[in-house]
Each structure stands twice: as structure tokens, then as C-alpha cells.
Design a protein around this nucleic acid. Structure first.
Lengths: 337, 337
DNA sequence: CTGAAAGCGCTAACAC
DNA sequence: GTGTTAGCGCTTTCAG
């Protein structure tokens, strides 16, 4: 075919020659070994600089049996995933930490049929570890990947095994706090729009709602699944209203669904915040963009992403790592409730 | 630390032994060479299956001098990038095509300071090519990456060079069509909320607006930069209104900004769609979620993403590839204009 | 503290 | 068609 055009990049051999040392010494410098004399270190540094040397990743991986890459697995429709600012924050957090390290982030969109391929890829040793950004209990293939490489889950996995790592927020407490806020403001006919029952966050937030209602001796005015999407939130709201229920307050398990609920409410001439108190969950960009601004439960999504990445990096480095991190939430009172 | 646990993966050597052929033959099968006898092919296939063989990526890269990976470069704040459903579609499209190939997609968030690192990484030969998802004319480092690996730009780059590849939509025509639509509906006092002047899409859509207005003998009622963000759109709208301008129609250069404009309008008691016609751009999920539903210019974002990936894959495969792809847009009339 | 030597697993000429 | 032979560029014992 075609001769490889002189890759700008020099090899370790050339650096060694220029620095007047052996390959091994250059390798040691590059990998931060302490056992190098100041003189050699200086010489190598200069040579690297002069030659603009960047180690070849493939060669390094092959020899060290590490790829220095991690997979970000998105078991979801791409547009659905990225449509929620919550995930955007998670990814941002992960990206920050990974970006500071010398790891690479491979994005794997593992929708259904692609999952087999994704598994093969993970088994091929292309990455040292994986982060599963969000998942449903039905994603069985996700469990199998943990047999291949270390995995950190975003959100409590369906079945928690001792060797699993995950980073979650205290969704039950968040759900309780949100409900308590509503009750404290004098509301009694409180309905909930929940997340899907096959996701831990969906289950837990609803649990918190139910717990707090029960503790206050109240019965939910209605509970509808909004599937964590804007459209689902609108639909759920319509169902509640359509059934003739007229709540005086609403606990919506995600900001995005709350936006959908706002729309559905207004379609019936009900003004959110004035005619019905609305409480969201996430405190994503959606919350402040809404009018009236959404009272919501803040979860530290960016921090969650950061923590996921940190945990994985710890595991890969052989450092002790926390298996379960539960981040706190807090109610942020705005105009809607 | 810890001995590498027996990686489930077999090597090519083991496959060869089991199939009773040489490594080369296995390699030929894996790489789809035709020059293999049916018998050998069958034997190798079985061995691969039995052993669940997956080629080692690093070894392959090292020997073939190809990484089979591409970089998705996001020269933007992560949350900003992912906050716009337009980008979500682009990424979805890219992901589709890349997922069907045996290439991997490395996500590089190249915000400012990280760009040097990103460049070094690209120079290190970690990827065969790159896709730049969106960019500002100020991103000078982006030009330098094209010297290292083939690059496909999303949107016309600041300076188009003969060797560049890019996929764009016809933003000027889109802007014209949108404006024509407004004019045809009888509007005359038309204001525009534009994208940033350092992005091709921002410049071109505004150009289309100005062209069409001029052609109709109309002067813009106002033009404000909304920075392609929801907040920016709201701010721009407020500025227009604050200046005492009362347009009867609005050309907003992105759906997201239109959402911001809706909010700003309502804050002043002006109802979008009724009191002022609003035209968006993108036809992202935002357009239909808005109430009243946003009349907008549809751009085929997913197709754009797909095309970007296809072009890059073509280039990498040595196939002839189109340097400039301009996708068409079309006006989608809904309730707001 | 440093160098020599032996691969890591695969592809790609090159013979046969 | 198929096997043999060299590496790809790096890490990593193992001596010294």
C-alpha cells in the first residue's frame, strides 16, 4: 500500500540515543520511576522535549497489559440519555476527572443489540475498566461485564454484589425531604409522578415519598409513572388530571418530568406554582429555566460523575476504593412550591 | 501489586493451534482476506468460536499501525454541549455509524487548557482520525490537529482548506426560508436572535435572515446575539423588549434559544404564537415540547452525525470521500408562526 | 542506578 | 493458499 508517512512522533529508541542512555532509562523517566539519577533524568527530559516525544499507546498497552482507557457505557437511547441535563452533568463530572488523568474515555452506546458487541469489545481487553452511566434492572448484560473488568455503576445496581462499586445519591431521603417540604407548606392532597420502576432512582424516590406521606398519616392523591422523560411527565400529569384527581401539590421525581407536568397542567388552565405546588428532583438547568422556577431536590450530579471516575481510577490503580458512595441531597426552595 | 488474572481471552496462537493452521491464516480470516480455503476458514471460525477469541487491540494496533479508534472532540463546556438536544442528535448519529463499524469512539472534552493535552494525545497516535463536533473560529488548536490526523468538522470550519472535510447544513438557505415564512404570514416588524458571531452556523443563519429581509425591502426590527443557549436567548429577548422594540415576529437561530425567548416574552405578558410569531431553528425535541409548538427549520442532525462518521470512515479506509457535504433544511410549520 | 534481553499479540511481506 | 519470519514500540525482569 503506502509507506507510513514519517509520524511526527519519535520512538523511545530515538529519545534514548539523543539522551545518551538506554531505552530502559527513558522508560523509567516517562513512567515516573524514582530510580533515575538527576543527570540522566535531565538529559532524558531534554531529549523528550526536543523530539516532542509521545509514547505510543499501543506499544505501551501491549507491553504493560494495561490500556489506560476506560469505557463509558450508556445503556440507553442516545438522544434520551443526552436529552436529560442530569446525564450531561454526570458525563461532565466523569470527563473532568478522566481528563486530568492519563486515561482515555471510550464512549459505548450499548442499546440492546449493540450490547453483545460491547461485551466482546470489553472482553477484547480494550479498556481497563468501565463506568455504567445509568441502567435499568433489565440490563442483564451489564452484570456480565463486571466479570470482565472493574465496573462502577451510576446509581445502585439492581442486585448489589459485594464486589460492585457504585455511586448514588440518597434518593429515599431526597424523596422524603421533598414530600416533607410539601406537607410543611400545608399541602395534603399530594400526587406523585415517579420514575420507572425498573430503575433504582425511580423506586427509591417514590419510596421516600410514600414513607413520608405515611409518616404524616396521608394517602397519596395519585401516583403515575413518568418514565423520567419530559413527555412521560406530561402524560402522567394528564392521566392524573384525566382521572379527575385535583392535587394541591405534586412530587415529581425529575426536573425534566416536571417540565412536562408544567405543560400538561397549563393545557388544562392550571397554573403551576399558583394553583398547584410542584416539587422537582435533580436541580438541573431545567429547574431554573422553568417559570415559575422549580422548587426541587438538589443532587450533586457533577460530583457524582467525578466520584464515579475517581472510584474507578482508584480501583485500577490498586488503591483502596469505596464500594458504595451515597451522596446527600438537599431541598432547594424556589417559586413553585 | 496484583498479577493479571488470566484474561479470558485466547491469543491468535491458541486459535491457530486449535484450528491446525498457522497464525497467518487465522489473521487472514479475522481480517476478512479472501485468500483462505473453505476448509481452513471453517476450522478457524470454529476455533474462534470455541475459544471466544477476540483479537487484542493493542497488538493489532502496534503491528498494523492503525488504532481503529477515532476521537470525538468536543471543544465546548460539557454541560453546555450536552445541554443542547441538537448535539445529542449529532452524537447519536455518529455513534450509530461508528457502532456499526469496528471503530471505537474516544470522547475528548477539549476545553481550553485541556487542548494541549488533547493535541499531544492525538499526536501520540491514539486515534486514526477525529471528528470535531462544533467549533468556534477562536479554536485555533483545532486547525493543528488536522495536520496530525484526518479530521471531519461538524459545520463549516472558520477557514476552509482544500484538504478539510466537513458536514454542514445549508444555514443561509434555512435562515432565508424561515424569514420568508414569517414574511409570507404578513409579518413586517421582524427581529432576530442570532447565534454567536464566531460560529459558522451563527453567522450563516443571520446572513440568511438579513438576505431575505433585504430582498423583501424590510429592515430588521432588532438583532441580538443569544449565544445558542437557552439563557442567552432569554437575555437577548429581554434586551430587545427592553429597548422598546415590539416585533410582530421573531427569527430565533436555535430552538433552545427560542425556549428562552418564550420565557422572556411571557415575563412581560407577551404570549408567544399569539402576540408574536416565533420561528426556531433545529427542530430538536425542544420544538415539539414547547407550547405552543415551535415552528422551526428542520435540520437533519442525526443524518449530519451519520454523515460525519461515514466521511471519516471513508477517509480512513482510503475510499474517496466528499470534502463538503451540505444537507438541506426545511421549514416545519407548527403553532408558533 | 543502569543496560541487555526477552517478550506483549498481532500483521505483513516474503517464500513456498 | 499457507506458513515462516520479522518486526511494531514499549515495559519489565534480571544482571551488573
Amino acid at each position: 500500500m503506502e509507506l507510513a508517512p514519517a509520524r511526527g512522533t519519535a520512538t523511545i529508541e530515538e529519545v534514548a540515543a539523543r539522551a545518551g542512555v538506554s531505552r530502559s532509562t527513558v522508560s523509567r523517566v516517562v513512567n515516573g520511576s524514582t530510580a533515575v539519577s538527576p543527570a540522566a533524568l535531565e538529559a532524558v527530559r531534554r531529549a523528550i522535549d526536543d523530539l516532542q516525544y509521545v509514547p505510543n499507546r499501543a506499544a505501551r498497552s501491549l507491553a504493560s497489559r494495561q490500556t489506560r482507557a476506560i469505557a463509558l457505557i450508556i445503556p440507553e437511547q442516545t438522544d434520551r440519555f443526552f436529552g436529560d441535563p442530569f446525564f450531561a452533568s454526570i458525563v461532565a463530572g466523569i470527563g473532568e476527572v478522566v481528563g486530568e488523568s492519563d486515561y482515555l474515555m471510550n464512549m459505548l452506546i450499548a442499546s440492546d443489540d449493540a450490547s453483545a458487541k460491547a461485551l466482546g469489545y470489553l472482553r477484547g481487553g480494550s479498556v481497563d475498566g468501565a463506568i455504567v452511566a445509568s441502567h435499568h434492572t433489565s440490563d442483564t448484560f451489564l452484570e456480565r461485564i463486571a466479570d470482565v473488568v472493574p465496573v462502577v455503576y451510576g446509581g445502585r445496581p439492581a442486585r448489589v454484589r459485594a464486589e460492585d462499586y457504585y455511586v448514588d445519591v440518597d434518593n429515599v431521603a431526597g424523596g422524603r425531604a421533598a414530600t416533607a417540604h410539601l406537607i410543611a407548606r400545608g399541602h395534603r392532597r399530594i400526587a406523585a409522578i415517579s420514575g420507572p420502576p425498573d430503575m433504582a432512582a425511580g423506586i427509591d424516590r417514590l419510596q421516600g415519598f410514600r414513607d413520608e406521606m405515611a409518616a404524616a398519616g396521608l394517602a397519596p392523591a395519585a401516583v403515575e409513572d413518568g418514565d423520567f422523560t419530559e413527555r412521560g411527565g406530561a402524560l402522567a400529569m394528564s392521566r392524573i388530571l384525566g382521572a379527575g384527581v385535583r392535587p394541591d401539590a405534586l412530587f415529581v421525581a425529575s426536573d425534566l418530568m416536571a417540565r412536562g407536568a408544567y405543560a400538561a397542567l397549563r393545557e388544562r388552565g392550571i397554573e403551576p406554582g399558583r394553583d398547584v405546588a410542584v416539587m422537582g428532583f435533580d436541580d438541573s438547568s431545567v429547574a431554573t429555566a422553568l417559570i415559575p422556577a422549580l422548587t426541587t431536590v438538589r443532587q450533586p450530579s457533577r460530583a457524582q460523575g467525578r466520584q464515579m471516575a475517581s472510584v474507578l481510577l482508584d480501583v485500577l490503580a490498586g488503591r483502596p476504593a469505596v464500594h458504595a458512595t451515597i451522596l446527600p441531597t438537599e431541598v432547594v426552595a424556589r417559586a413553585s412550591a
